[in-house]
Protein backbone atom coordinates (compact mmCIF):
# COMPACT_ATOMS: atom_id res chain seq x y z
CA UNK A 1 0.00 0.00 0.00
CA UNK A 2 1.43 3.27 -1.09
CA UNK A 3 1.00 6.42 0.85
CA UNK A 4 -2.35 8.16 0.84
CA UNK A 5 -2.13 11.33 -1.22
CA UNK A 6 -4.01 14.57 -1.07
CA UNK A 7 -4.29 17.14 -3.83
CA UNK A 8 -4.40 20.55 -2.22
CA UNK A 9 -6.20 23.35 -4.06
CA UNK A 10 -5.28 26.75 -2.64
CA UNK A 11 -7.81 29.06 -4.24
CA UNK A 12 -6.01 32.14 -2.93
CA UNK A 13 -3.29 31.41 -5.49
CA UNK A 14 -5.43 30.46 -8.46
CA UNK A 15 -5.30 32.87 -11.41
CA UNK A 16 -7.89 30.91 -13.39
CA UNK A 17 -5.43 30.49 -16.24
CA UNK A 18 -7.17 27.19 -16.93
CA UNK A 19 -3.87 25.42 -17.53
CA UNK A 20 -5.28 22.58 -15.41
CA UNK A 21 -8.52 22.41 -17.35
CA UNK A 22 -6.73 22.04 -20.67
CA UNK A 23 -3.83 19.93 -19.38
CA UNK A 24 -6.42 17.45 -18.17
CA UNK A 25 -7.97 17.32 -21.63
CA UNK A 26 -4.57 16.96 -23.24
CA UNK A 27 -3.41 14.11 -21.04
CA UNK A 28 -6.71 12.27 -21.00
CA UNK A 29 -7.34 12.92 -24.71
CA UNK A 30 -10.75 14.41 -24.09
CA UNK A 31 -12.33 16.11 -27.07
CA UNK A 32 -13.77 19.60 -26.94
CA UNK A 33 -17.43 20.44 -27.02
CA UNK A 34 -19.07 23.27 -28.90
CA UNK A 35 -20.01 25.82 -26.29
CA UNK A 36 -21.72 29.20 -26.16
CA UNK A 37 -20.70 32.34 -24.36
CA UNK A 38 -23.44 32.83 -21.81
CA UNK A 39 -22.00 36.01 -20.36
CA UNK A 40 -19.28 34.35 -18.31
CA UNK A 41 -15.67 33.32 -18.70
CA UNK A 42 -16.70 29.90 -17.40
CA UNK A 43 -16.82 27.30 -20.12
CA UNK A 44 -17.88 24.54 -20.46
CA UNK A 45 -20.72 25.52 -18.14
CA UNK A 46 -20.32 22.44 -15.96
CA UNK A 47 -18.28 19.28 -15.61
CA UNK A 48 -18.99 16.94 -18.50
CA UNK A 49 -18.04 13.45 -19.55
CA UNK A 50 -15.24 15.12 -21.53
CA UNK A 51 -14.43 17.86 -18.98
CA UNK A 52 -13.14 16.32 -15.80
CA UNK A 53 -11.92 19.52 -14.24
CA UNK A 54 -13.31 23.00 -14.68
CA UNK A 55 -12.53 26.46 -13.40
CA UNK A 56 -15.67 28.09 -12.09
CA UNK A 57 -15.76 31.88 -12.35
CA UNK A 58 -17.94 33.77 -9.93
CA UNK A 59 -18.33 37.45 -9.15
CA UNK A 60 -18.90 38.11 -5.49
CA UNK A 61 -19.71 41.40 -3.83
CA UNK A 62 -18.84 41.41 -0.16
CA UNK A 63 -20.72 43.30 2.55
CA UNK A 64 -18.69 46.46 2.05
CA UNK A 65 -19.44 46.47 -1.67
CA UNK A 66 -16.03 45.23 -2.81
CA UNK A 67 -16.26 43.12 -5.93
CA UNK A 68 -14.14 40.01 -6.00
CA UNK A 69 -13.71 37.53 -8.78
CA UNK A 70 -13.63 34.04 -7.31
CA UNK A 71 -12.14 31.11 -9.14
CA UNK A 72 -12.69 27.52 -8.11
CA UNK A 73 -11.25 24.44 -9.73
CA UNK A 74 -14.02 21.91 -9.65
CA UNK A 75 -13.65 18.16 -10.15
CA UNK A 76 -13.66 14.85 -8.35
CA UNK A 77 -12.99 15.17 -4.62
CA UNK A 78 -11.80 11.56 -4.31
CA UNK A 79 -13.75 10.81 -1.12
CA UNK A 80 -12.67 8.19 1.35
CA UNK A 81 -16.25 7.20 2.02
CA UNK A 82 -17.07 7.46 -1.67
CA UNK A 83 -20.71 7.11 -2.62
CA UNK A 84 -19.76 6.27 -6.19
CA UNK A 85 -17.56 3.38 -5.17
CA UNK A 86 -20.13 2.17 -2.70
CA UNK A 87 -22.88 2.09 -5.22
CA UNK A 88 -21.06 0.87 -8.30
CA UNK A 89 -22.45 -2.57 -9.07
CA UNK A 90 -19.53 -3.67 -11.23
CA UNK A 91 -16.58 -2.31 -9.26
CA UNK A 92 -15.74 -0.10 -12.20
CA UNK A 93 -15.16 2.62 -9.61
CA UNK A 94 -12.64 1.70 -6.99
CA UNK A 95 -10.10 3.08 -4.54
CA UNK A 96 -6.46 2.83 -5.52
CA UNK A 97 -3.43 2.47 -3.29
CA UNK A 98 -3.17 6.28 -3.21
CA UNK A 99 -6.67 6.74 -1.86
CA UNK A 100 -8.03 8.28 -5.03
CA UNK A 101 -11.09 6.93 -6.81
CA UNK A 102 -10.24 5.49 -10.16
CA UNK A 103 -12.45 4.21 -12.92
CA UNK A 104 -12.23 1.14 -15.13
CA UNK A 105 -14.31 2.26 -18.04
CA UNK A 106 -14.44 -1.22 -19.53
CA UNK A 107 -16.38 -2.39 -16.53
CA UNK A 108 -18.83 0.49 -16.49
CA UNK A 109 -22.31 -0.55 -17.57
CA UNK A 110 -23.75 2.96 -17.67
CA UNK A 111 -26.24 2.42 -14.84
CA UNK A 112 -25.62 6.00 -13.62
CA UNK A 113 -25.98 4.98 -10.00
CA UNK A 114 -22.77 6.81 -9.15
CA UNK A 115 -24.21 10.06 -10.50
CA UNK A 116 -26.85 10.02 -7.80
CA UNK A 117 -24.52 8.80 -5.15
CA UNK A 118 -21.99 11.59 -5.60
CA UNK A 119 -22.68 14.61 -3.41
CA UNK A 120 -20.48 16.78 -5.69
CA UNK A 121 -22.12 15.99 -9.03
CA UNK A 122 -18.88 14.66 -10.50
CA UNK A 123 -19.50 11.51 -12.57
CA UNK A 124 -20.88 12.41 -16.00
CA UNK A 125 -22.58 10.20 -18.51
CA UNK A 126 -21.80 9.91 -22.21
CA UNK A 127 -24.82 8.62 -24.07
CA UNK A 128 -22.71 7.75 -27.09
CA UNK A 129 -20.65 5.22 -25.19
CA UNK A 130 -23.23 4.49 -22.46
CA UNK A 131 -20.57 5.03 -19.83
CA UNK A 132 -19.70 7.49 -17.14
CA UNK A 133 -16.44 9.38 -16.93
CA UNK A 134 -14.61 11.39 -14.29
CA UNK A 135 -11.19 12.40 -13.00
CA UNK A 136 -9.02 9.53 -11.76
CA UNK A 137 -6.33 11.86 -10.38
CA UNK A 138 -4.14 10.69 -13.26
CA UNK A 139 -3.76 7.31 -11.64
CA UNK A 140 -1.30 5.96 -14.18
CA UNK A 141 0.82 9.07 -13.78
CA UNK A 142 0.84 8.55 -10.03
CA UNK A 143 1.88 4.96 -10.62
CA UNK A 144 4.69 6.24 -12.80
CA UNK A 145 5.68 8.72 -10.13
CA UNK A 146 4.49 11.65 -12.19
CA UNK A 147 2.41 14.57 -11.01
CA UNK A 148 -1.19 14.59 -12.16
CA UNK A 149 -1.48 16.65 -15.33
CA UNK A 150 -3.38 19.45 -13.59
CA UNK A 151 -0.86 19.76 -10.77
CA UNK A 152 2.08 19.79 -13.16
CA UNK A 153 0.46 22.53 -15.20
CA UNK A 154 -0.38 24.85 -12.33
CA UNK A 155 1.85 27.95 -12.55
CA UNK A 156 1.26 29.47 -9.16
CA UNK A 157 1.32 26.58 -6.73
CA UNK A 158 -2.48 26.69 -6.32
CA UNK A 159 -2.36 22.96 -6.97
CA UNK A 160 -0.07 20.69 -5.00
CA UNK A 161 -0.07 16.98 -4.26
CA UNK A 162 1.63 15.07 -1.48
CA UNK A 163 1.24 12.78 1.52
CA UNK A 164 -2.01 13.33 3.35
CA UNK A 165 -0.61 14.57 6.66
CA UNK A 166 1.81 17.01 5.03
CA UNK A 167 -0.85 18.46 2.76
CA UNK A 168 -3.33 18.88 5.59
CA UNK A 169 -0.74 20.64 7.71
CA UNK A 170 0.04 22.91 4.77
CA UNK A 171 -3.61 23.60 4.20
CA UNK A 172 -4.27 24.65 7.77
CA UNK A 173 -1.13 26.73 7.88
CA UNK A 174 -2.12 28.54 4.72
CA UNK A 175 -5.69 29.15 5.89
CA UNK A 176 -4.36 30.56 9.13
CA UNK A 177 -1.92 32.82 7.28
CA UNK A 178 -4.70 34.10 5.05
CA UNK A 179 -6.86 34.84 8.08
CA UNK A 180 -10.31 36.37 7.74
CA UNK A 181 -12.85 33.92 6.42
CA UNK A 182 -10.29 31.46 5.07
CA UNK A 183 -10.89 27.84 5.85
CA UNK A 184 -9.94 24.30 4.90
CA UNK A 185 -12.58 22.26 3.09
CA UNK A 186 -12.59 18.53 2.60
CA UNK A 187 -11.17 16.76 5.61
CA UNK A 188 -14.28 16.91 7.76
CA UNK A 189 -16.79 14.88 5.78
CA UNK A 190 -17.12 11.62 3.84
CA UNK A 191 -14.23 10.41 6.03
CA UNK A 192 -12.05 13.01 4.35
CA UNK A 193 -11.58 13.76 0.68
CA UNK A 194 -8.33 13.32 -1.20
CA UNK A 195 -8.81 16.73 -2.73
CA UNK A 196 -8.76 19.50 -0.16
CA UNK A 197 -9.42 23.19 -0.67
CA UNK A 198 -8.05 26.24 1.04
CA UNK A 199 -10.95 28.63 0.59
CA UNK A 200 -10.16 32.33 1.06
CA UNK A 201 -13.87 33.13 1.44
CA UNK A 202 -16.53 31.42 3.53
CA UNK A 203 -17.44 28.07 2.02
CA UNK A 204 -21.07 29.06 1.51
CA UNK A 205 -20.02 31.88 -0.81
CA UNK A 206 -18.90 29.46 -3.52
CA UNK A 207 -21.42 28.31 -6.09
CA UNK A 208 -21.98 24.56 -6.43
CA UNK A 209 -19.95 23.73 -3.35
CA UNK A 210 -22.04 21.63 -0.97
CA UNK A 211 -21.90 22.78 2.61
CA UNK A 212 -22.54 19.42 4.18
CA UNK A 213 -21.74 16.85 1.56
CA UNK A 214 -22.88 13.36 2.40
CA UNK A 215 -23.86 10.23 0.63
CA UNK A 216 -27.62 10.07 0.17
CA UNK A 217 -29.27 7.81 2.75
CA UNK A 218 -30.77 5.61 0.06
CA UNK A 219 -27.28 4.80 -1.16
CA UNK A 220 -26.26 3.63 2.25
CA UNK A 221 -29.33 1.45 2.35
CA UNK A 222 -28.38 0.06 -1.01
CA UNK A 223 -24.81 -0.61 -0.11
CA UNK A 224 -25.36 -2.06 3.29
CA UNK A 225 -28.47 -4.07 2.68
CA UNK A 226 -29.44 -4.65 -0.90
CA UNK A 227 -26.23 -4.97 -2.85
CA UNK A 228 -24.79 -7.82 -0.76
CA UNK A 229 -28.00 -9.71 -1.22
CA UNK A 230 -26.71 -11.50 -4.26
CA UNK A 231 -26.88 -9.12 -7.22
CA UNK A 232 -24.45 -10.36 -9.79
CA UNK A 233 -22.55 -8.35 -12.33
CA UNK A 234 -24.59 -9.94 -15.08
CA UNK A 235 -27.66 -8.44 -13.57
CA UNK A 236 -26.08 -5.13 -12.86
CA UNK A 237 -28.03 -3.14 -15.40
CA UNK A 238 -31.19 -4.27 -13.76
CA UNK A 239 -29.64 -3.49 -10.44
CA UNK A 240 -28.74 -0.01 -11.60
CA UNK A 241 -32.25 0.60 -12.77
CA UNK A 242 -33.57 -0.71 -9.52
CA UNK A 243 -31.24 1.53 -7.60
CA UNK A 244 -32.38 4.45 -9.65
CA UNK A 245 -35.91 3.55 -8.87
CA UNK A 246 -35.36 3.52 -5.14
CA UNK A 247 -33.35 6.75 -5.15
CA UNK A 248 -35.33 8.82 -7.61
CA UNK A 249 -38.59 7.11 -8.33
CA UNK A 250 -39.74 5.90 -11.70
CA UNK A 251 -38.62 8.83 -13.86
CA UNK A 252 -35.50 8.21 -15.90
CA UNK A 253 -32.80 10.88 -15.90
CA UNK A 254 -32.62 13.14 -18.87
CA UNK A 255 -29.62 13.67 -21.00
CA UNK A 256 -29.14 17.28 -19.96
CA UNK A 257 -27.01 15.97 -17.15
CA UNK A 258 -24.17 15.82 -19.63
CA UNK A 259 -24.70 19.51 -20.16
CA UNK A 260 -24.68 21.55 -23.29
CA UNK A 261 -22.74 20.10 -26.12
CA UNK A 262 -21.19 17.44 -23.94
CA UNK A 263 -22.03 14.55 -26.14
CA UNK A 264 -23.50 16.30 -29.11
CA UNK A 265 -21.31 17.20 -32.04
Amino acid sequence: MSQELIKLIDLSRCTACRGCQIACKQWNELPASRTKNTGSYQNPPDLQWNTWTLIRFQEHEDQSGNVKWLFRKDGCMHCTDAGCVKVCPTEALYHTEFGNVSLNVDKCIGCKACMYACPFGVPKFNAATNKIYKCDLCYTRLQGNQLPACVLSCPTGALQIGPKDIMLTKAYKRAKALGGDASVYGDKFVDGTHVVYVLPEKADVYDHLPQDPKIPLQIIVWKEFLKPAGLMVAGAVVAGAFLHYITHGPKMPEEEITSEGGDKS
Binding site: A16, C17, R18, Q21, I22, K25, Q26, P31, A32, S33, R34, T35, K36, N37, G39, Y41, N43, P44
Partner: peptide, 24 residues
Amino acid sequence: ATEHWCSGFTRWQPWLLEAMPEAY
Protein backbone atom coordinates in the same frame (compact mmCIF):
# COMPACT_ATOMS: atom_id res chain seq x y z
CA ALA B 1 -7.34 36.72 -22.58
CA THR B 2 -5.45 33.58 -21.55
CA GLU B 3 -7.26 31.37 -24.03
CA HIS B 4 -6.74 33.82 -26.89
CA TRP B 5 -3.75 34.53 -29.00
CA CYS B 6 -2.97 37.14 -31.59
CA SER B 7 -5.80 37.59 -34.08
CA GLY B 8 -7.45 34.42 -32.88
CA PHE B 9 -5.03 31.72 -33.96
CA THR B 10 -6.50 29.87 -30.98
CA ARG B 11 -9.90 29.74 -32.68
CA TRP B 12 -8.56 26.81 -34.70
CA GLN B 13 -7.94 24.83 -31.56
CA PRO B 14 -11.00 23.10 -30.16
CA TRP B 15 -9.95 23.05 -26.50
CA LEU B 16 -9.29 26.77 -26.47
CA LEU B 17 -12.37 27.56 -28.51
CA GLU B 18 -14.42 25.50 -26.06
CA ALA B 19 -13.16 27.69 -23.23
CA MET B 20 -13.68 30.98 -25.12
CA PRO B 21 -16.19 30.24 -27.86
CA GLU B 22 -17.48 33.64 -28.94
CA ALA B 23 -16.71 37.32 -29.18
CA TYR B 24 -17.98 39.36 -26.24
